[in-house]
């Protein structure tokens, strides 16, 4: 009871701190300097129609490389923590088979979900979406497969291969930008093309596709690791 009251008091105090922020908030009338630069320069400099993608992949490309690294680290630690002490036998309690509906439905839906994921990350520079979103969609297709066949063991080697190769290619493109264009992860190693076409914005579609594959592989390995933990 005291604990609950203390928590409530703390939340009330925090709420009182946040309230002036809420009441005193006035939306900006014009873009600030940074946003203005991005809005005005993106089309001419990078040729990407989606400005958020241009910021994530090129203007702040190094941060995104770091973000992908953090995601890789957390996937690796999840695998490490869950694999330690895991019994080699696949035994344990036999799992209930998935229903007929789920099995049949997943056969139809899984390829379509994968296709949607690929569409989302290939068109990341034109439409809302991109590598992280597409990768998450691909991982949701993998989750459907895992649900449909609870006993299935995913090929960890394939996942690890896709993940490391796309990561390596990502860094290689970054270094190519250093040599052939203005700097690390510069997208202008490929022609910028016409704004709004699929093959435009230089290396951005390539980089975002690699990020999509990498993120999809990382999320899939997290899901596989979590689903392969034995029931206690």
């Amino acid at each position: 009871m005291i604990r609950r009251a203390a928590a409530l008091a703390l939340i009330a105090a925090l709420g009182a701190l946040l309230l002036p922020l809420l009441l005193g908030y006035h939306p900006d009338e014009a873009l600030n300097l940074t946003a203005c630069y991005y809005a005005e320069r993106t089309a001419a400099d990078l040729g990407a129609a989606n400005i958020v993608t241009a910021i994530v992949v090129t203007y702040r490309g190094l941060d995104t490389l770091g973000e992908v690294t953090v995601l890789f680290l957390s996937a690796a630690v999840v695998g490490l923590v869950l694999a330690r002490g895991r019994t080699a036998t696949t035994g344990g309690r036999p799992r209930l088979p998935a229903g007929e509906l789920l099995t049949t439905g997943s056969r139809l839906l899984a390829p379509l979900i994968m296709l949607l994921g690929i569409y989302i990350f290939v068109n990341g520079h034109l439409t809302p979406g991109g590598g992280f979103q597409g990768g998450a969609v691909i991982a949701s297709g993998v989750l459907l497969l895992l649900l449909a066949e609870p006993g299935r063991r995913l090929g960890h080697r394939v996942i690890a291969l896709v993940e490391s190769l796309s990561g390596l290619a990502y860094v290689a493109i970054g270094v190519a930008g250093l040599v052939y264009a203005g700097g690390f992860l510069d997208n202008r190693i490929l022609p910028i093309g016409t704004l709004g076409e699929l093959a435009s914005a230089g290396a951005i579609p390539v980089i975002y596709s690699l990020i999509g594959l990498k993120v999809g592989a990382e999320f899939s390995s997290m899901l596989a690791n979590l689903s392969e933990t034995e029931e206690l």
């Binding site: 991005y38 995601l71 999840v78 923590v81 869950l82």
Partner: peptide, 26 residues
């Protein structure tokens, strides 16, 4: 257009959030 910078920030934050949640679950 609206400000693109917060959207790029939140994209990063969501992805890191997923990683942290997976770690906590493990």
């Amino acid at each position: 257009i609206i400000d693109p910078v917060p959207q790029a920030l939140v994209l990063t934050a969501i992805v890191i959030g997923v990683g942290i949640t997976a770690l906590m679950l493990a």
